[in-house]
């Protein structure tokens, strides 16, 4: 029961943070709140036994991504353009989200209950990892074992993704912009 309360509270904060992010136009504040959101999410992950994920989320969401966001803001703008409330502009995305949400909720109706140990998720492959991780690898952190060995290939992919991202960022902004800028602005405006 306590867990539920903590959960609910975290969710409440998350929703509030998200709403605040939505409302605020100061991008610095938004960035900070986004970091906060990640932290809260990390907390939630902890309550759901995903310590590794929580760790990562905290490091990435609250750490690196905030830093990157700030550096980007330094190069772009501090404030969002004041948000004009036009009902149509509001309504259409809202309806989109409601429909998508409705679809998702409809999808959850047949899901196994939260935490149900008999859910197929736990009985099939997931359970198997728990039983065979020690004999197979001797690594107690199942997540690490799965990550690096059973699904090591995914992690190779993951590393590649981050590599690609770095390459891409370097390709885009990795070099002094003087040359680039001149070209970008050729013949425009």
């Amino acid at each position: 029961m306590g867990i539920i309360l903590v959960d609910l509270m975290l969710f409440g904060f998350l929703v509030l943070t998200a709403l605040a992010i939505m409302r605020l136009t100061n991008l610095f504040a938004v960035t900070m709140l986004a970091g906060l959101f990640s932290l809260l999410a990390a907390g939630l992950f902890v309550t759901m036994d995903a310590v590794d994920v929580a760790f990562t989320e905290a490091a990435v969401g609250a750490g690196i991504s905030t830093v990157l966001m700030l550096s980007a803001l330094a190069l772009t703008a501090r404030n969002e353009k004041p948000f004009v409330i036009v009902s149509r502009r509001m309504a259409v995305p809202l309806i989109c989200c409601l429909v998508t949400g409705a679809a998702l909720i409809y999808g959850t109706l047949d899901m196994p209950a939260f935490g149900d140990p008999d859910a197929p998720v736990h009985t099939h492959v997931g359970g198997e990892y728990i039983t065979r991780v020690i004999p197979d690898t001797g690594v107690p952190n199942i997540v690490t074992a799965v990550l690096a060995s059973y699904r090591g290939y995914d992690t190779l992919g993951e590393t590649t993704v981050i590599f690609v991202a770095a390459i891409a960022v370097l390709l885009l902004i990795g070099f002094p912009r003087s040359a680039t800028r001149r070209r970008d602005e050729d013949g425009s405006e």
């Binding site: 699904r151 290939y153 995914d154 992919g157 993704v161 891409a168």
Partner: peptide, 20 residues
């Protein structure tokens, strides 16, 4: 899930390539 990972590898690089 591996599909997703590699899909992202290709997507991210495509974004960068397009932007170049």
């Amino acid at each position: 899930f591996n599909v997703f990972v590699f899909l992202e590898i290709s997507s991210l690089s495509t974004y960068a390539l397009v932007a170049s």
